[in-house]
Deep mutational scan, measured.
Amino acid sequence: ELREAFAKVDTDGNGYISFNELNDLFKAACLPLPGYRVREITENLMATGDLDQDGRISFDEFIKIFHGLKSTDVAKTFRKAINK
């Protein structure tokens, strides 16, 4: 299930999730959020999830993000976006 969610976000299939891919995910989900809020959520996920600070999120980092977000608003938003 997590591998499928990761693949859905990794639209270019390079094995990593970029800032733009995350941002595009939230935009495509048509969530009722202003653009600046989408950017804040994306920046927050990148800042906390990109553990090796290479500017992208690997599958291992994605798993840690996903499990670390349990019930936060960001987690709910992220799950809604993935499930669209």
Rank of each mutant, 00 (worst) to 15 (best):
E4W: 00
R79G: 15
P32G: 07
I41A: 04
K70F: 15
G49E: 07
H67R: 09
L2A: 01
K84E: 15
K27P: 01
L2C: 02
F78H: 15
P32A: 06
N83G: 14
T77Q: 11
K27E: 12
I65Q: 03
G68Q: 15
N23W: 06
L69V: 12
Y16I: 01
F26G: 00
L51D: 06
D54L: 06
T11D: 02
D10P: 00
T77K: 14
I57N: 00
E21F: 04
G15P: 00
I17N: 00
D50C: 07
N23V: 09
L33D: 12
A29V: 15
R79C: 13
N20L: 06
T48Y: 06
G55H: 04
L33H: 08
D12M: 10
R37F: 06
R37A: 12
S71F: 05
H67K: 13
K27Q: 09
F78G: 15
A47N: 10
S18L: 09
D54M: 08
S18G: 08
R79M: 10
K70H: 09
D12K: 10
C30N: 15
L69I: 10
G68E: 15
S71K: 09
L51Q: 06
Y36S: 15
K64A: 07
F19N: 03
F6L: 00
D12L: 06
R79K: 15
I17W: 00
K84F: 14
G68V: 11
D12S: 08
C30P: 07
T42L: 11
G68D: 14
R79A: 12
T72K: 13
A81H: 11
E4H: 15
L33Q: 12
S58H: 06
Y36D: 15
F6W: 12
H67M: 07
E21Q: 14
K76S: 12
R56F: 08
A28I: 13
K27S: 06
I17K: 00
D73C: 09
A47M: 11
G68A: 15
N23H: 12
N14S: 09
L25K: 00
A47G: 09
K84I: 06
R79E: 15
K70T: 12
I57F: 08
V74A: 13
I57S: 00
L51F: 09
R39S: 06
V9P: 00
L51E: 07
S58V: 01
R3G: 03
F62M: 04
A29E: 07
E1A: 15
E4K: 12
T11I: 06
T48P: 04
K27H: 05
L45H: 02
V38S: 04
K8G: 05
I82V: 04
G13A: 04
